[in-house]
Simulated scan of single mutants.
Amino acid sequence: MPRPCGIGRPRKKPDSLTGDKAYSSRANRALLRRRQIRTTIPEPRDQQANRKRRGRSGRRPPTFDADHYKRRNQVERGFNRRKQFRVVATRYDKLAAHYAATVTIAEIIDWLRAQPDRSHS
């Protein structure tokens, strides 16, 4: 059902959600399934053991796309590299131009670190 025009931004439903093991509860998965949102959440070992112990009544394991989960890790590491710059992490600079310049400098330094070392050729 479309949302009526009004104040605020329109709600959008994500196609998929990727989370870590902390979000693998049955309640979270059921909520996302009801909303028809695909998930990529690994199942913790204790939940795997409990499901296997229950046999047929333990149901099938939830689907898990390992390649999709690896991309989540890449994005998270990128954010963590940016957070190494304290100004970006805490946003001490109040002026938007100063903040944007700091973010740009952080991205340039991150890019330079990622480049292969060519001084040994």
Rank of each mutant, 00 (worst) to 15 (best):
G8T: 04
D15P: 02
I37Y: 14
T63P: 12
R45Q: 13
S57V: 06
N80Y: 09
D65W: 04
E43Q: 10
K52Q: 10
R3D: 12
L17S: 05
S57Q: 09
I41L: 07
A89E: 07
I108L: 15
R60Y: 03
T63W: 07
E76N: 03
K21S: 13
R91S: 06
R72Y: 03
K83A: 13
K83L: 06
G6D: 10
Q48Y: 01
R53M: 11
G8Y: 10
R35F: 12
H68Y: 09
G19M: 00
F85G: 03
Y23T: 00
C5Q: 15
S24L: 01
T104Y: 15
I37K: 04
R26P: 00
V75M: 08
R56W: 05
N50Y: 04
I41W: 01
R77G: 10
I37A: 13
K12G: 04
P4K: 13
V75E: 01
R29N: 01
M1G: 12
R33G: 02
H98I: 01
I41A: 04
Y99T: 09
T18H: 05
R91T: 03
G8H: 00
S121E: 10
V87T: 15
E43W: 05
D20V: 00
R113P: 01
P116W: 01
R33K: 15
N50M: 11
F79L: 13
R53F: 02
R81H: 11
L112I: 11
W111A: 15
R3H: 14
R38T: 12
A114S: 11
H98N: 15
K52D: 13
A106I: 01
V88Y: 02
V75H: 06
R86H: 06
R113V: 07
D65E: 09
R51N: 00
F79V: 10
L95F: 12
R71W: 13
K70Y: 14
H68E: 12
T40W: 04
H120V: 07
R91G: 07
L112Q: 08
P62A: 09
T90H: 09
R91F: 06
F79M: 06
I41Q: 05
A100E: 11
P61W: 03
L32D: 00
Y69E: 01
D117R: 07
A97Q: 07
P2C: 09
H98D: 11
I105P: 02
P10K: 13
V103I: 15
G55C: 05
M1K: 00
I37C: 04
R45I: 05
M1L: 08
